[in-house]
Design a protein around this nucleic acid. Structure first.
Lengths: 239, 239
DNA sequence: TAACGTAATATTGGATCCAATCAACGACCG
DNA sequence: CGGTCGTTGATTGGATCCAATATTACGTTA
């Protein structure tokens, strides 16, 4: 006789939400973007094993684009890949957060220093608009994007594309921690005072002040995350 | 009638020297390491197209490990990959050199500041030994490795593995320019005075002096490369 | 009973084949 | 004669199949 339909075992991969809103150039890019978004959101917590076969089935593709996407994610330090043993979502931790902050603390002031003298009025207006958008935004996911765009808008005039790409990559990595930061503050807002002060200093071409504000901004954020990990002790990544 | 044996057309890939000295874990790692070494040496100059088929034939492998290796190199900014159009060795330029230096100038002082208070006597002895090795070394290829190891030895106590990995990656990228630096100085030696001064300051736990020396070290190196490009105008990468 | 060695299985790494895309060339039309 | 559109060749992207490797479980032995 027929067995009752198997209750399909729940999988962490159920959290994947492939976005078909775009025409991705290649399947690899599609898989990479989808996995990346899920990891940064926290929908795929640290430690989640990523089996190529399972992912391929989810995406309706073969294992090949999945393999290439996993390689890309590995180079972004979002997953750990061990030869012949597979990929696992990188664990988050207080130490890793501090690591990310140390890098941001080094790169972003340097970018800002190079950028401020060359910032256009157009860029300054864009930055102001992004602050307003952040005031209005409620969704945590988009908040990371807006915060990232605000910072990058201020740095973009620095030239030095590799420096900017690195800075942006670290901002993206920080998105994994941003939710904790927001949760700790009990509200869905960034430290907008710092943002406004940075923009003001940039408008006045006061590089020294802008950098001082940025460094304080990063230090307080690092402190908030550190306290969060200290109180919560463990990880408990999922919402 | 039979044609005379074709004089095999010379290819930039003739410069590849696959090292069979190691047992590589996977074929992908083997291809990646070989290509990387050739690019950093300057044996594969900027602009060289890298055809998957041709590389696969050279290595006696299929195109698959070549594809994965190219992805890895792309993530290290050593090659540019355009979808459906193939990979090309990244061009070097005065602007790119300045970009790399801007990153090093941001990351390495930060790493040094974190590291010096925690440096062990063992690490200090290692660094001293590396300075002596550099004095004796004549080969340009190994000089890059020794220079890298010296710097990383001083930074290693910083913890923050991601920061250290980034710093090392930039040091590696700098290898592409190191030959020009050495050529400009008319001798096969690094600025060993700076290295010795950094080590002395580190021994004395004088973080401020060590960072000042490091920043001067990087600034003079950047200046040397900039002058080199200014005089030579073009690229002319190959030895 | 514990430890070691061996076999079975699951999973990734690599090879081969097919499809999609891009560039170049040439024909057609204005 | 110039520009545009279709066709063809070269090259990469993706699918499928096979091989190598690591982990697990099991059985044997000290």
């Amino acid at each position: 006789m027929l067995d009752p339909p198997l209750p399909k075992p729940p999988s962490p991969l159920d959290a994947l939400r492939p976005s078909l809103a775009f025409r991705w150039r290649t399947a690899t890019e599609f898989v990479e973007a989808t996995l990346k978004a899920a990891i940064l959101d926290g929908r795929l917590p640290g430690g989640t094993p990523l089996r190529q076969e399972e992912l391929a089935a989810r995406f309706g593709l073969s294992r090949m684009p999945v393999r290439e996407a996993l390689r890309q994610l590995e180079s972004q330090a979002l997953i750990d890949v061990l030869p012949h043993r597979g990929a696992v979502v990188t664990e988050i931790s207080a130490a890793d957060a501090a690591d990310t902050y140390a890098i941001r603390r080094a790169l972003e002031p340097a970018a800002l220093r190079l950028s401020i003298p060359r910032l256009s009025d157009h860029a300054l207006r864009d930055a102001a608009a992004l602050i307003d958008e952040m005031d209005a935004e409620q969704e945590a996911g988009r908040m990371g994007l807006l915060n990232r765009r605000f910072h990058m808008t201020l740095y973009a005039a620095a030239g030095h594309p590799r420096l900017l790409a690195l800075a942006e990559q670290q901002l993206i990595a920080f998105d994994r921690y941003l939710r904790f930061h927001l949760a700790s503050q009990g509200r869905a807002h960034m430290a907008q005072e710092d943002h406004r002060a940075m923009l003001e200093a940039a408008r006045a071409r006061d590089t020294g002040t802008a950098i001082a504000v940025l460094e304080r901004h990063l230090d307080t954020a690092a402190g908030t995350i550190a306290r969060f990990f200290a109180t919560r002790g463990g990880v408990t990544e999922a919402s």
